[in-house]
Design a protein around this nucleic acid. Sequence first.
DNA 1: CGCGGCGTTGATCTCTGTCAATACTTGTGG
DNA 2: CCACAAGTATTGACAGAGATCAACGCCGCG
Lengths: 231, 231
Amino acid sequence: MDPHDWQLVRSTPLFGAIGRETADRLLDGNGPRVYDRGLLLFEQGTPATCFYVVLDGWVKIYRTTPDGQETVVATFRRGETFAEAAIFMGGHYPVSAETVTVCRLLRINGASLRRAIHNEPDLALAMLASSSHHLKSLVEQIEQMKRMTGPQRLADFLLRLCSSPSGSCQINLPYEKALIANRLGMKPESLSRALAKLKPLGINVDRDTVNVDDVAKIAQFIEDTRDDEYI
Amino acid sequence: MDPHDWQLVRSTPLFGAIGRETADRLLDGNGPRVYDRGLLLFEQGTPATCFYVVLDGWVKIYRTTPDGQETVVATFRRGETFAEAAIFMGGHYPVSAETVTVCRLLRINGASLRRAIHNEPDLALAMLASSSHHLKSLVEQIEQMKRMTGPQRLADFLLRLCSSPSGSCQINLPYEKALIANRLGMKPESLSRALAKLKPLGINVDRDTVNVDDVAKIAQFIEDTRDDEYI
DNA sequence: CGCGGCGTTGATCTCTGTCAATACTTGTGG
DNA sequence: CCACAAGTATTGACAGAGATCAACGCCGCG
């Protein structure tokens, strides 16, 4: 593995605490691989054998209902791991995963992970930290879905893409708007309208480029539109 | 610990795989304790020291915003464990927990859990299974929030309270309707109306008692109201 | 008895989904 | 190079779901 990649891998909660040799044992000789866009990595209900580290690109995690509709549960980007919890759930992926851009991923075998845990209890703690991390972000998403309006969720989504916490910035939407909409629990049409509503706040969109005049203003908007109780 | 309690504890994903002596070591001499209703077990942002097993009663897990509003993320009942993931997240509870009925709970120390994991790798796997289990139910809740209407979510909620998968049955609402509404991501008024909408399906409510004429009919309703694509 | 908490009901409004029409982009093949 | 088709994004009109605000009923409790 490239030293540059290794540095990225080390930044994840899972690999942050373990040594290089353990990591190499986990990888089991499998280096990073490039995946095409729109590729199905694994499917809901199939045996959970591997989990992944994103080195580049974006991956979506989603559930499909019997009638074919899909609900995006999460998207992962450079420096994040996903599906590591599925390995321990009882054999089957509870979600599907698909690349939404061209990706470079590390694939890690679940069996060798289990083996490594037996030898190295610290790895188990790292795993637990990692899956707790995912748990927390799901909890946050639930809170968001329940308490924020569409435009607010969108503002929050954009905020997380901004590099600095204040000032102006230009960001690229990571993937299609339809996917962003699904991710945020709305329809593409609503996303368009939500974007229009954010325009007065100094957020201008052209294709997949977003110009934000003042990042702090977005954060402000998210707070302001809450129905304050003024206790 | 009472043998009856022990049997219940063993039914949880966490304790299912470990032996009695390990469990006793975890409990560290602390037996079940009775908690009053409306008691704050731990608060969002405070150091995460313990996790719990519900022996009787109901506990809610919620997040509060700076302005004091709370969003219920999950409720736990007899035979479930909660907050075990928080132990590994970096020291602080990401949510608050409060009893919503009189409860009997087991409290387990996070430090002794960490210690036990070092001695017994299988315990780590059990922990991972347990937290994966929670992860899955959060994913399911997100899917629910995004794709189901209020009445559907309510029907699903009631369905999970029914003991048998078909026939008629009588259930008791586990806690206040306002809390159920929050849990399902709606306002109390909407819950009332959702209940009214379920009446034609043979669901009658009197105070906190619900009579269901045909459980299968509810399951049917959840499926039917989906916007099928008829592929 | 009156009060307060909880739940229901009604009227109204806002938001979002739906359906349909219309750009705009991209890729393809003549 | 252009025409065309397919995919993607926006916009408008409309309907439905749910929030909000307000009023009222119910019940338990001092």
